[in-house]
Design a protein around this nucleic acid. Structure first.
Length: 641
RNA sequence: GGGGGCGUAGCUCAGUUGGUUAGAGCGUCGGCCUGUCACGCCGAAGGUCGCGGGUUCGAGUCCCGUCGCUCCCGCCA
């Protein structure tokens, strides 16, 4: 018999009854009834109940076992007595009667119990990550992560992609995030950098003629964490393809993501054809470039209804700035004073002056003729309203009907005609509400998007239990940097402008208005409001590249110094190419139903980029520092006396 | 770097208007218990109420500062 086990703890079934077996595992739970003692023995594969009673030679030893001790037990598989089977356990029909116990590893009192679902502080969980990882949920998440990565690899290979490895020690890149630096021993004063992404390498792989690249690529960025952004390091499914248009990239990647989501979503529906939403439209409709399409709320520009209206606050805003607009955020079923006031308070908590609203309540009063005249028999949105009026009339409630009575100070000042036009445009009905934001959109878009999300959540409009994908396309190439009064790259400087090269080369860098309307062939994948990926068709022409950087204020010498290697490569026969890089951690997070990356990463760092288990970052010896030609200069302690 | 929330037993949390000796459940330890599987019953240990200062006859409770955790902003394609 094997030194440690003949079976795993998830293996035994009724068919194994009578076998002499050997199991090894952790004491998950001990239930001591005095005369009979049950231990749930756990390993990676499952749980098996092992039993000892006073007739067992191991009874005394069994009584000394404690939670999470690692033991080997020998014994005979026997059926559980009738009525005591556990249908929740795959091994629940049987148990092992213990003949012998060997303690393989004792455990001191646990700082974090493995058994049970109790919440534990993040700090404890991270410090004792190996205990946390024994727990069912994390253990399963990590296994699922592995299965997802297997599936991604398989699907990529099936599409003709080949996996490459790129350097971990590379050069600091001037754009993008803060680099992690590694001092060079051989070159005093010089540093390697860990790659923020293998961006330049994957482009060079295309230029090297390999055609279809992918990698489960570690990426390192020294930026502050968020719940959906690990500090320090994370993984991307990095992809690049040669001789492709945007459509080709979408056609290659969409089935991979849809397939892997369908495989691991647990039956939740996944978008069949990812809609393509231009960046500008996403901002206007959803207030963000990563919209959660499970939320049905779509914002609309209703400036024309307010322009010159009796609601002077908005009318004046519109009159005072040509850029100003009024956007409406519809709130189906939000038509109550209580809800609208709650949203208003929320907005104030967000630092806004408030959140204007109109809501339409149902009111059993005489039907005013002038209002009735505004109803449109062909408007499907008004159908239920008309039906209710008809029904009341048939019930003989003469002179009574339900009307939608617009309420709130905005409606009073706006007047019935404009209010009704608004209701019609937004397709709202009695019992609904609408909220407004008014100013120059650039200043309120972010808040409007947050309000849309908040309203959707509060009203239960968000269809959980599904995965709603979309592509966001046509990102702006440049943006205006107000602080430095200059034009900046909006995203990746390597993206191809969405303009014929000749037209782009002919651009006048001083023509700011024109340049700020330029789009790049750049795209994101968004799922349920989470940005999964960013990508682009790359700029493979040195002349266009030089021009693109010139517009952003980099002269050729700077470009040469920063991206010289890349530029030379492009000048020696570069194929048109493009790709993207979906975030693996975020994909796994969505598929595990978690809302924090730390729940799907084996050994994550905390928010301050510390590994509490390994004690990273740590001090190093003076000798190590000397070899690296490094002398720390710590910030001086502030004297608070 | 900035803002919000939180900080009471190992864990989750309660703690009244500022008032006697700070509680419960879970966990741990001990005892009892022959069919449990969140076993049950009895008992015990376990507290600088994050830390420092202030107000007060009296502070877990009020005020100020500070530290830690967390979420967000900045930052991050």
């Amino acid at each position: 018999m094997h030194r440690y086990r003949s079976h795993t703890c998830g293996a035994l079934r009724a068919g194994d009854i009578g076998l002499n077996v050997r199991l090894s595992g952790w004491c998950h739970r001990v239930r001591d009834h005095g005369g009979v003692l049950f231990i749930d023995l756990r390993d990676h594969y499952g749980l098996t109940q092992v039993v000892a009673d006073p007739d067992s030679p191991a009874f005394d030893v069994a009584g000394t076992l404690r939670a999470e001790w690692v033991v080997r037990i020998d014994g005979k598989v026997r059926p559980r007595p009738e009525g005591t089977e556990n249908p929740d356990l795959p091994t629940g029909a049987v148990e092992v009667y213990i003949r012998e116990i060997e303690v393989l590893g004792r455990a001191a009192e646990l700082p974090l119990p493995v058994f049970g679902e109790q919440e534990y502080p993040e700090e404890t969980r991270l410090k004792y990550r190996f205990l946390d990882l024994r727990r069912e949920r994390l253990h399963q998440n990590i296994m699922k992560r592995g299965a997802i990565i297997d599936s991604l690899r398989r699907r990529m290979k099936e599409q003709g992609f080949f996996e490459f490895q790129t350097p971990i020690l590379t050069a600091s890149s001037p754009e993008g995030a803060r680099d992690y630096l590694v001092p060079s021993r051989l070159h005093p004063g010089k540093f390697y950098a860990l790659p923020q992404a293998p961006q330049q390498f994957k482009q060079l792989i295309m230029i090297s003629g390999f055609d279809r690249y992918f990698q489960i690529a570690p990426c390192f960025r020294d930026e502050d964490a968020r719940a959906d952004r690990s500090p320090g390091e994370f993984y991307q499914l990095d992809i690049e393809m040669s001789f492709v248009t945007q459509d080709d990239v979408f056609a290659a990647v969409e089935p991979v993501l849809r397939g892997v989501f369908e495989e691991f979503s647990g039956g939740k529906p996944v978008t069949k054809d990812f809609p393509r939403i231009p960046y500008g439209e996403a901002i206007q409709r959803y207030g963000t470039d990563k919209p959660d399409l499970r939320n049905p709320i779509v914002m609309q520009d209703v400036s024309e209804i307010f322009r010159g209206s009796g609601f002077k606050v908005f009318a004046n805003i519109l009159a005072n700035s040509a850029k100003a607009a009024v956007w409406a955020i519809p709130a189906p079923r939000g038509g109550s004073r209580a809800f609208c006031d709650r949203m208003n308070s929320w907005a104030q908590g967000e630092g806004q002056p408030g959140l204007g609203y109109i809501f339409w309540r149902e009111d059993e009063q005489a039907w005013p003729g002038d209002f009735q005249a505004t109803l449109d028999p062909s408007d499907q949105n008004q159908k239920d309203l008309r039906d209710r009026v008809d029904k009341l009339a048939k019930e003989g409630r003469v002179g009574q009907a339900i009307r939608a009575l617009a309420a709130g100070p905005i409606a009073n000042n706006l007047g019935p005609k404009r209010t009704e036009a608004l209701r019609a445009q937004l397709g709202l009905k009695a019992g609904d509400a609408v909220f407004f934001v008014a100013s120059e959109p650039a200043t309120f878009v972010k808040f409007a998007g947050a309000a849309r999300t908040k309203i959707g959540e509060e009203l239960g409009l968000i269809a959980k239990d599904r995965f709603e994908f979309c592509w966001i396309v046509d990102f702006p190439m440049y943006e205006w940097n107000e602080e430095e009064k200059k034009i900046d790259f909006s995203h990746n400087p390597f993206s191809m402008p969405n303009l014929p090269p000749e037209d782009f080369l002919a651009l006048d860098p001083a023509h700011r208005e024109k340049i700020l309307t330029l789009r790049a062939v750049q795209y994101d994948i968004v799922c349920n409001g989470v940005e999964l990926s960013s990508g682009a068709i790359r700029n493979h022409r040195p002349d266009v590249m030089k021009k693109a950087f010139a517009i952003a204020g980099y002269d050729e010498a700077v470009l040469e110094r920063k991206f010289g290697g890349m530029l030379h490569a492009l000048a020696l026969g570069a194929p048109p190419h493009g790709g993207l890089a979906p975030g693996i951690d975020r994909i796994v997070m969505l598929l595990c139903g978690e809302d924090n990356l730390r729940e799907v990463v084996l050994f994550p760092m905390n928010q301050r980029a510390e590994d509490l288990m390994m004690g990273a970052p740590s001090e190093v010896t003076p000798r190590q520092l000397r070899e690296l030609h490094i002398r720390p200069s710590r910030p001086e302690q502030r004297d608070l006396s």
